[in-house]
């Protein structure tokens, strides 16, 4: 449904997207995660025909974005990261306008608009002017707008950005709802946890390169199987590092100025045994605690450990 082959985008010498290879099958919700400037918006703007790839190919619904952009536009619903709305229209008129742009059959426009407004919880606001809606409501309206022509693919660029916690929750509900519609959805975000409940697969984009692609379940399993432990204590030089590296469950030791950060893959009982061994080995332990795990960071670290590049 969405396929990219060695997709590249360069601005002069700057490589915004580097050889992106992606395959998203029909009905999959795919999350594209990366920090600001990683290239998420550039990748999505190429897929939505707003910009042209420097090299490589991208196919949406079987249509190549450079050769058949018109068919691609008809197949996608695109929501940009920063968007504006036509303030002086009511919610219903807004949807009707975009339905006209997509040449949707007039006989079904009203019914479809009503259905979509119900889906994004805006039914009561259908005669309200768009400028009277909150930011969160406008973002949900945008999702309804993307669906007005019943596209096969939805491309949502940071749909929950700039929202307060309540609106984020509402948006998450809407996204879960979309998932039930069976659409192929590509969502970008700079927070992986935000996508955990809606995405089937996640790709991590780093400096324009897609470094990891994995099923969200695999990522979540990793996050529960691996943990980061923070240890602070006093020990003769080299003892701490020796004791830690002797434990087969310790994957990585990172020495910090005031302690050690340990990537650990054992059970809680094994973790307790590690503490015991440290104390018995002569380490005066002042802190031994588990740190909150950032799934994205964890996954990146694991991939780097596997590749030996961390």
């Amino acid at each position: 449904m969405i396929l990219t082959q060695n997709l590249c985008k360069k601005y002069g010498r700057m490589v915004a997207i580097n050889e992106m290879n992606l395959s998203i099958s029909t009905g999959t919700v795919f999350g594209l995660v990366g920090e600001n400037g990683a290239g998420k918006t550039t990748a999505l703007s190429m897929l939505s025909t707003l910009s042209m790839p420097t090299s490589g190919y991208a196919y949406i619904n079987g249509y190549e974005v450079s050769r058949d952009p018109r068919s691609v536009r008809q197949s996608i619903g695109y929501m940009p990261d920063s968007f504006g709305v036509y303030d002086e229209l009511t919610v219903m008129e807004y949807l009707r306008f975009f339905a006209d742009c997509y040449r949707v059959d007039r006989r079904i426009v009203k019914r479809r608009a009503e259905e979509l407004l119900e889906r994004v919880n805006l039914t009561e606001k259908r005669h309200t002017y768009v400028n009277a809606l909150s930011r969160g409501m406008q973002q949900r309206l945008e999702i309804a707008r993307c669906l007005m022509h019943d596209p096969a693919v939805l491309i949502l660029d940071e749909p929950a950005s700039g929202l307060d916690p309540k609106s984020r929750l509402e948006m998450r509900g809407v996204l879960q709802n979309l998932r039930d519609m069976g659409k192929t959805i590509l969502i970008s975000s700079h927070i992986l946890n935000e996508l955990a409940e809606v995405a089937d697969e996640v790709g991590i984009l780093r400096k324009g390169s897609l470094v990891v692609i994995a099923a969200i379940q695999v990522m979540l399993q990793h996050s529960s199987a691996y943990r980061t432990i923070w240890i602070q204590g006093f020990a003769p030089h080299g003892v701490m590092k020796r004791l830690l590296s002797q434990d087969q469950h310790v994957l990585e030791v990172c020495e910090q100025p005031d302690g050690w950060e340990v990537l650990y893959a054992g059970t809680l009982a094994q973790q307790a045994e590690l503490l015991q061994r440290l104390v018995q080995g002569g380490v005066v332990v002042s802190q031994f605690r588990e740190q909150p795990t950032d799934i994205e960071q964890l996954f990146l670290r694991l991939s780097a450990v596997q590749e030996g590049t961390w």
């Binding site: 695109y78 940009p80 968007f83 504006g84 036509y86 742009c101």
Partner: peptide, 13 residues
């Protein structure tokens, strides 16, 4: 300036 052009250009118009 209102940032509505981007969306308009992703329609078949």
């Amino acid at each position: 300036e209102r940032r509505t052009l981007t969306v308009l250009l992703t329609t078949p118009l």
